[in-house]
């Protein structure tokens, strides 16, 4: 069954459909939270699903469930990050090292290694990499989730790739 049908059945009020929706998307939500927060956080995951239940009747386009879900997850994660850091934009990376790196990210990298490196990136850069590369969402969906223009997503992706590459090199990874 497609996501769209599943979402429509949930909007009708079929409890079994909601259980199925949770089973299909829980892993994705959990991974997104873990990568964004650099740790597993069950409370945030539960908060996201609670918001999904409460807002699902108002979802106008069931076909756009994935970006809608990620937008909810993003809000929950950002709230958590705001509580954790005084400034979510400050990151531990040396920008000049990233500038020197330059090249685009190779297609095939060990995902565990990337997860480790991702945690060192600032949240905004981390999230576009997670949404675009690890969640396989199109640029338009990433822009919708982050509430920014597509051009901004592209520039964030460019910067994030450089930062990630610099971090991977710092950890001893050879492309």
């Amino acid at each position: 069954m497609s996501d769209e049908s599943l979402v429509v059945r949930c909007q009708l009020g079929e409890r079994e459909a909601f259980a199925e929706l949770v089973r299909v998307w829980h892993g994705t939500v959990e991974r997104y939270v873990r990568r964004m927060l650099s740790r597993a956080d069950d409370d945030v995951v539960q908060e996201i699903w609670l918001a999904v239940v409460r807002q699902l009747p108002r979802l106008r386009q069931p076909g756009l469930f994935a970006p809608w879900l990620f937008a909810i997850a993003r809000r929950a994660v950002m709230n958590q990050l705001r509580q954790s850091y005084a400034s979510p934009d400050t990151g531990p990376l040396d920008e000049s090292a990233a500038e020197a790196a330059g090249d685009p990210l190779p297609d095939l990298l060990d995902r565990e290694l990337i997860d480790g490196a991702l945690s060192a990136l600032p949240p905004r850069d981390r999230e576009v990499l997670i949404l675009f590369y690890l969640s396989d969402l199109p640029l338009e969906a990433c822009a919708q989730i982050c509430a920014v223009p597509v051009g901004t997503v592209k520039s964030r992706l460019h910067r994030a790739r450089r930062l990630l590459r610099a971090e991977l090199l710092r950890k001893g990874y050879e492309a």
Partner: peptide, 17 residues
């Protein structure tokens, strides 16, 4: 956390009664 744990936490909002 499993999907069943998530669903347990959503018992209230998902209760028709």
């Amino acid at each position: 956390m499993t999907p069943e744990d998530v669903l347990k936490g959503l018992t209230g909002p998902l209760s028709l009664r």
